[in-house]
Write a protein that binds this DNA or RNA. Structure first.
Lengths: 104, 104
DNA sequence: TCGTGACATCGCGATATTACGATTTAGACC
DNA sequence: GGTCTAAATCGTAATATCGCGATGTCACGA
């Protein structure tokens, strides 16, 4: 139940400082709004392909967006076979909310 | 008592996505920790010069940092004579904290 | 084992940010 | 007026980010 370090705060804010990445994190609140998948989204997360389709960017760009969010610990990746599934890391997001007003 | 728009959220996160700007906003929580000034810091804010000195950057860089924070509505500038004083905009910061978990 | 599909990584040009010194604007004071 | 100081803006080079296509890597299936 530790706090976020300054470096973690900065990298999280940087990751959220982009309209598409911010939108993606919002979309992931309702994983079931995405097309159906073998494993349900609210268990393992949403497949990268579906995120890419909704964001309307290239495959490499979508992958980089998610890598940035992952480095900031804002999402968790679950790889199943060839598929990468992403879901929100509510713990970090909650810490971030608490940090605003406390640290910030 | 409205909410922050997506553009406002992005610009706020961008502004906070820099270690020095993030630190400055934290410093401004205790304006009295800065050197004394004619008008007390908890009334009008902290003089740019004191912020510059603590951040250890050039005058122009300090000015730009504060302009970025101001464009994001995270600080309020009060000009008294030749001096620009900056203080936190607690309203926006509170809205930002609420937005995390709601929008984000 | 040879494809095929999913994803990550590389390499790149375009664009944005960073931080600075120099200049300009503006107020205070004589 | 003139001069000082504070701060914003301008111009800049260095650096970082953005978004893409191309390539590499890995898992699955015929």
């Amino acid at each position: 139940m530790g706090e976020l370090s300054v470096e973690q705060l900065v990298s999280a804010f940087k990751a959220l400082g982009h309209p598409t990445r911010l939108a993606i994190l919002g979309w992931l609140k309702d994983g079931n709004s995405f097309p159906p998948q073998d494993r349900p989204a609210d268990e393992v997360g949403v497949c990268l392909k579906h995120i890419q389709a909704r964001a309307n960017v290239s495959q490499s760009t979508a992958s980089q967006f998610m890598a940035t969010l992952q480095r900031a610990d804002l999402v968790i990746c679950t790889r199943i076979g060839q598929f990468s599934h992403y879901r929100r890391n509510e713990q970090t997001i909650a810490k971030l909310g608490k940090a605003i007003g406390a640290d910030v």
